[in-house]
Computed example of a mutant assay.
Amino acid sequence: MGGDALNEEQAAGIAVCVYCASGPVDQHHLDLAAEVGTAIAKRGWTLVSGGGRVSMMGEVARATRAGGGRTVGVIPRALVDREVADDDADELLVVDTMRERKGLMDAHASAFLTLPGGIGTCEELFEVWTSRYIGMHEKPVVVLDPNGHFAGLLEWVRGLVESGFASQRSLDALTVVTDVDAALDACAAG
């Protein structure tokens, strides 16, 4: 990407909030997080994360900084020791509750990108996805799933649509891709 394009994207102020695992995972998940962080930095964007320096959360932040990107971490005081706070973040915001954490992450982000993770990651995804669907924001909500991590969950949601518990429009409020560049392009589409 040329310097002019990078400057245009920096001027656009794109800040992508990445939700992902903060616990032990296989190396291919760490590699994916690093690839995402590198790609965020290459585009001159800001990373907004949960403020931990371990697992995928730490890897995406380290890779973003290594590429020259800016990082903003938001972490509850109770998790500072448990997740080992990302003290290297350009901006580390320590809050009292998970609700405050999510609120600040939302406020700092212009798009949401979900990588593989557990129940906390799913909870964050569902909150921003639902908020987009009901019109509380228009920010892109993207899932990057190159290895089928979310296949069962997405099949369940499609079943909700088929049984009338969810609308097709709610499903359409989520973008699911398998490629890092496609994921970031979708994040920029908002």
Rank of each mutant, 00 (worst) to 15 (best):
I119V: 15
L184H: 02
L30K: 05
M56D: 01
V94G: 08
V80F: 06
L79T: 01
T97M: 02
V161D: 10
V84E: 10
A166M: 10
A107Y: 05
A41R: 04
K42I: 12
G13Q: 15
L171C: 06
T46D: 10
T97V: 01
V16M: 00
S55Y: 07
K139F: 12
S55L: 01
G117W: 09
T114E: 00
H108S: 12
V180T: 11
D185P: 02
Q27V: 14
A12K: 10
P140A: 03
V72W: 03
S22L: 15
I119T: 08
G50D: 06
L104H: 11
A66M: 12
V16T: 06
M57G: 05
E138G: 12
F112T: 02
M56Q: 13
K102V: 07
E123P: 02
S170H: 15
G159W: 13
G44W: 04
G69K: 05
D106P: 03
E91T: 08
T121L: 11
V95E: 04
I14N: 11
V180C: 09
E162I: 07
E100A: 05
V16R: 00
D86N: 11
I119S: 12
G67H: 10
L144H: 04
V94I: 08
F165T: 00
V60G: 01
I119N: 03
P146W: 07
G67S: 14
G50Q: 06
